[in-house]
Amino acid sequence: MLKRLDRSDLEKLLSALATGYRLLTPQRLADGTRLLRPHGEGALALQGEPVQRKPTEAFFPQHDPLLRIGEQGEVTTCDPPVRPVALFGLNAADLGCIAFIDRFFADPPADDHYLARRKDALLVGLTGFSGPGGDVLPPANGMCDLELLAFGQNWLGVPWTPRGEALLEGFPDGEQAEVEELLESARTRGNPAQDLLEKAAGLVASEVVPDDFWREVGDRCILCSGCNLACPTCTCFCVEDRQEQAVTLRSRVWDSCQFDAFMREASGHNPLGTEALRTRRRIHHKLAADVTRWGEFGCLLCGRCDRVCPTGIGIQAVAAEILARFGP
């Protein structure tokens, strides 16, 4: 089933989503920041760079209360909001990232807190000609309930789940030929960043990158932790306890493997006690360890760590340097 939506159809679809879900849509704020925001708060920004904040925060927030421990030691859990979220406007990389951490949090022992937010959530991909300046984006290939491929002034709606199918019911049919044309356009663009990552990953995994390189890159790290906070596949968190009037509130908080304290032992010894080792770990984890564990890179090339890094040592920048210096 393929549907064709014009602007008013799109508005209808969004209204339908807003009745059943807490709907977040991409909007550009006054300073130029593009974020997923509650639908209706601002004008839709349907084209552009990926939304700045990682969409995985809808299921795994930066600061997330987990439970309360009362005076007598009784524990009550902090239940996530009942109303499920619908994320509208995700590109293929972000959908890949959500799938990546879905697998991580669902892997036994499953993370109930994550799954409670995630289970009824709805994902709507936005691909086709919806990149920066109307560039074509790669298709989502089924990692969402429903995909909208931007095409001229219209959108081709592709349902990937029964829920997606139900949402598209009633809209006029689309032409498969139009999808093919769009997919061909995305195919001919290729994906040079993916090639770069694969070649750099090969060099990282084969241990040809010397320690001096990691020291040089580590020397450029100002320890902002932004690379981890911005990364949609980073799932490390720490636990914060706060006590107020004999009740302890336990929350989880996004952590960063670039912190010294992340691996520091109580003795003070740290097996990852230098910036060089921590930087190596950051890149190695995504390009080598995740491949061993999950069979794919932990980097889906969303571009956020490169954008957020104040000194230009995001994963794509480092991969390019590795390739330039140690490649064939």
């Binding site: 300073d31 974020l35 904040r53 927030p61």
Partner: peptide, 11 residues
């Protein structure tokens, strides 16, 4: 409740 921070892109 405050849950996080995001830098301004256009500043």
């Amino acid at each position: 409740r405050l849950v996080g921070v995001e830098p301004s892109a256009g500043h």
